[in-house]
């Protein structure tokens, strides 16, 4: 499923990287410990996290995620958004918490909604 479909179906806010919504989402990964994300997430994952500091961009770029989804409506640092633009990373945001967002996304990716 394309990122833009997820945005539409989960009513997500696009914070950065509007131009890259055609990317294909292959799966999901939820986590806030950068070392775990580096070790466990896969290319093409949507990464769900409440971390908002600039280092998440480097991690996401390195792993080749299709998008970062910030949960619980966390306020994202300006610097993070700037870095995302530089690295061509899409940042999405939802008021749902990680549990609910992961639940919804996994239902969406597995059954198409």
């Amino acid at each position: 499923m394309k990122v833009k479909e997820i945005v539409k179906k989960m009513k997500l806010k696009v914070v950065a990287g509007k131009d890259f919504l055609e990317r294909e989402a292959k799966g999901g990964y939820a986590g806030d410990l950068l070392s775990d994300v580096l070790a466990g997430s896969k290319e093409g994952d949507v990464w769900l996290t409440v971390q908002v500091h600039p280092n998440i961009i480097a991690v996401s770029a390195m792993k080749g995620h299709c998008a970062i989804l910030i949960t619980s409506s966390k306020t994202i640092e300006e610097e993070t958004i700037e870095k995302a633009k530089e690295e061509k990373i899409t940042i999405l945001s939802t008021p749902l918490n990680t549990f609910e967002a992961a639940g919804k996304l996994s239902r969406l990716l597995e059954n198409g909604g």
């Binding site: 999901g28 918490n97 549990f99 996994s106």
Partner: peptide, 20 residues
């Protein structure tokens, strides 16, 4: 299970998230 999958399984079984 990783966090994402664990949430997915429990959500599918009817558990909801906390208020935001």
């Amino acid at each position: 299970l990783p966090l994402y999958e664990a949430c997915g399984v429990l959500y599918e079984a009817g558990l909801t998230g906390t208020m935001i």
